[in-house]
């Protein structure tokens, strides 16, 4: 990122922006029989450490593909994706798993907690994978559950928790290994308005407190007001990138209608 006046103004509190995810001319082509579907048509994007970025776009826009791409879940047909300066295409299966385990936290639309495990066990599973001892994992897991406001419910199974609580556990789990990036895929889509807002606030709080980068794919306009930047994807291309200041105007405008 060049130090233009505009760039410096965008993220006032951060002196220097470090890129955590970078895509270069990313193209993704799916073959459906004879037909080639161009899900992404050359996307250049830089995502900075500590920012809260929302990706918006209608279904079929390539939003999900782009989201999976920056989350290390899909590889580009052409172009490059760097996550924390690592070229994803160069990684073998083991390294990819390592990357997902330690560098990326995932939050899903349908929470995806492991049903047979308690809240605490769900949160500590990534730590177990990362080689922490069970004592270390338990202590850290309890701290994280406390942070998301579920310290008392650590022994509950997912089916004993409400949707909002499950998503809180999922947030704690995503932060288990102090990732560089948290990817949230429509995290509020299965929640009611109030609970969804709570989750968004929680993500924002985590983002402020621990400086973790949050990338979220969403339809949810509540998300706009907390995002540092919003990327609109359309027809496999980035249609528009809006910064926070522009968004504030837009949101008030929408609310004024």
């Amino acid at each position: 990122m060049t130090e233009t006046a505009e760039g410096a103004a965008t993220a006032a509190p951060k002196e220097e922006k470090r890129t955590v995810v970078r895509t270069q001319q990313v193209k993704r082509v799916y073959k459906m029989g004879e037909i080639e579907v161009h899900a992404l048509r050359g996307v250049d994007m830089e995502i900075y450490t500590g920012e809260y970025l929302s990706i918006m776009g209608p279904s079929g826009s390539g939003k999900s593909t782009f989201f999976n791409m920056v989350g290390g879940l899909d590889k580009p047909s052409e172009g490059k994706v760097y996550i924390d300066e690592v070229d994803v295409a160069q990684l073998d299966a083991y390294e990819l798993a390592w990357l997902r385990c330690r560098k990326i936290g995932y939050i899903f639309q349908s929470f995806n907690l492991i049903p047979v495990m308690t809240a605490l066990e769900n949160v500590t599973l990534p730590m177990v994978f990362a080689g922490l001892t069970s004592d270390e994992a338990r202590d850290k897991g309890m701290v994280l559950l406390g942070k998301v406001g579920l310290g008392e419910r650590y022994s509950h199974k997912p089916n004993e928790l409400s949707g909002g609580q499950q998503q809180r556990v999922a947030v704690a789990r995503a932060l288990a290994n102090d990732p560089a990036v948290v990817l949230a895929d429509e995290p509020t889509a299965n929640l009611d308005l109030a609970t969804g807002t709570e989750i968004i606030e929680l993500l924002r709080e985590m983002n402020r407190d621990s400086g973790v980068t949050i990338i979220s794919a969403t339809h949810d306009h509540k998300m706009l007001s907390v995002s540092d930047r919003v990327v609109w994807v359309k027809d496999g291309q980035v249609e528009r990138v809006a910064n926070r200041e522009d968004l504030d105007i837009e949101v008030t405008h929408v609310e004024g209608e």
């Binding site: 879940l73 990534p126 994978f129 990362a130």
Partner: peptide, 11 residues
């Protein structure tokens, strides 16, 4: 569930 485990870093 399997996909989730893999996202969490399961080999």
């Amino acid at each position: 569930e399997i996909g989730t485990m893999k996202c969490l870093g399961a080999l």
